[in-house]
Design a protein around this nucleic acid. Structure first.
Lengths: 84, 84
DNA sequence: TAAACATTTAGACAAATGTCTAAATAAAAA
DNA sequence: TTTTTATTTAGACATTTGTCTAAATGTTTA
């Protein structure tokens, strides 16, 4: 859970997840949605990937990112357990 | 949501929440559950309190901490929304 | 092949974080 | 009233984090 909460502890990364909730996006498309440099977004994507919150697939010169809802379930369960 | 995720981004604080899920506890009881100094635990409790994840009530010379499940619902909703 | 495009890696740096010890505050007990 | 107990506040310090620019990698187009 450590990597997951670490990944969620940043407004930009949470917004990236909210974007990917709608549709898969390339690294460049994601970067364009923020006023932050591309290397910084790349770093955020790396953190999200290490936490398994997103997956990535190379398509030609692009890299397409997707939300991994399996791990979202893990967060859900942790939080729900707090209420039991 | 910023303060909430910040509060959750620490193993010790998450364990404090898990302890308080079971029963209300004094600051001292909470500190005894960890191998960390009392001032450090006090600091963690302060962060949890600022995030509204716990409430505290003075009882004589003790301070009793409780889990605030209202805010836990807020986290739950944020995560659920990611799956819709 | 050379130039352009998409993305990441490397390295630097200021700001934030978690921990500690020492001191302060406040209530209870002797 | 003095001492003990419970907790927090203050201040220091090493580590982690988020950001940037410059350079590297890999792919596509001219």
């Amino acid at each position: 859970m450590n990597n997951i909460f670490k990944a969620l502890n940043d407004e930009t990364r949470r917004e990236i997840l909210e974007l990917l909730r709608r549709r898969d996006m390339t690294a460049g498309e994601i970067a364009d949605a923020f006023h932050i440099s591309k290397p910084s977004i790349s770093h955020h994507l790396d953190i999200l990937k290490r936490a398994d919150l997103v997956t990535s697939e190379k398509k030609g010169q692009f890299i397409v990112y997707s939300l991994n809802t399996t791990i979202v379930d893990d967060i859900l369960n942790w939080v729900i357990n707090l209420k039991k």
